[in-house]
């Protein structure tokens, strides 16, 4: 490694830690969110330096982009409900008993000590599953090892991660409902023009990222997050307004990926094959099909999570609407 890159890595590592500390220490909520987003982008860069472009893409799109948007929306929500001067310190009105604070500090230190021992005591280089992955690659149906792990070797984990997302949207819909305009900052008419220009391009990029996932970094979660950005844009510019009548379709789109994934897992079994065991000759087709449907579900689910509630017409009750 050249010295210039080493210097860059050191600076990057320092910056990540410094920004994280700043995000924790700053008192203003908006500044906190901005710092969080910067932190996410720098982490994505760090993942690139660690030769993990797939993780970098996910970090940038989901960990930073979507999470940042969610945090900003929450802040707007709090301010719209009369908490304009909301400060992180204002929440802790009741002073924490000193004994509890010391106990917490002690427990946190113990956990940190455990982490220290575990990290310092680990061997520097352990061969993980790289060799096993490399050996099984020809049978996986795809050329990108990350996609092979996610959709073939450990497809069961990935199915269940898709289910985690589905569970999240079900819980959110259960907790919050309302059909009025979303309490999100609405963008002016200028943005509609901007949206019309950029949406097709964003759609193209999202689909490309999904398609490229078979051979290069990319895949369902990253592609889905990019498509979800389109959904956010449409919600924010008012190009799309959720309506109670759309709920049936929305539910179908939420579950589409889960159903396709799980049904394939069961249907390929039999004749000596276990569940999730794709026949090698069809593996690529099946994987791309599952990924495409999962991408749609992820995009719609993330958009719905950003909207944050089930669109139900409530009888004269427009709570949470300013």
């Amino acid at each position: 490694m050249s010295d210039a890159l080493l210097l860059f890595d050191l600076l990057l590592a320092l910056a990540v830690v410094a920004i994280a500390a700043a995000a924790l220490l700053v008192r203003d909520a908006f500044a906190m969110i901005v710092l969080f987003v910067v932190f996410g982008l720098l982490s994505a860069l760090a993942w690139v330096r660690l030769a993990a472009p797939d993780v970098a893409l996910a970090e940038a799109a989901i960990g930073t982009g979507l999470t940042g948007a969610l945090l900003l929306k929450t802040l707007h929500h709090l301010r719209a409900r009369g908490m304009a001067g909301w400060q992180p310190g204002a929440v802790a009105q009741r002073p924490v008993p000193r004994a509890v604070a010391w106990l917490n500090a002690g427990l946190a230190l113990a956990v940190m000590a455990g982490l220290g021992v575990a990290i310092l005591g680990s061997p520097l280089r352990v061969t993980g599953l790289e060799i096993a992955v490399a050996e099984a690659m020809p049978l996986s149906g795809v050329e990108n090892p990350v996609t092979a792990v996610l959709l073939n070797f450990r497809a069961y984990d990935t199915l269940m991660e898709v289910v985690v997302l589905l569970s999240a949207v079900i819980v959110v819909w259960q907790i919050e409902r309302g059909a009025g305009p979303a309490p999100a900052p609405s963008l002016g008419p200028v943005w509609q023009g901007f949206a019309r220009l950029t949406l097709p391009a964003a759609a193209l990029v999202g689909v490309y990222v999904l398609w490229a996932g078979a051979e290069a970094p990319g895949g369902a979660f990253q592609g889905g997050a990019m498509l979800a950005a389109i959904g956010l844009m449409m919600l924010l510019t008012g190009l799309y307004r959720p309506h109670p009548d759309h709920r049936g379709l929305a539910r179908l789109l939420f579950v589409l990926g889960t159903v396709a994934f799980a049904a394939t897992a069961l249907l390929v079994a039999g004749g000596g094959r276990a569940s999730f065991e794709y026949p090698p000759s069809y593996a690529k087709t099946l994987i791309l099909l599952i990924e495409a449907l999962v991408t749609i579900s992820i995009a719609v689910t993330l958009t719905a999570l950003f909207h944050g509630r089930e669109p139900v017409a409530l009888k004269g009750d427009l709570r949470h609407d300013p």
Partner: peptide, 24 residues
Amino acid sequence: YLQLGRLDFAGVIAAPPSAAMTAA
């Protein structure tokens, strides 16, 4: 995973005991 390079129970059981493993 950092220490063993695998996460299945069989691998974890067979791992030699160490301070790092106990901490994890």
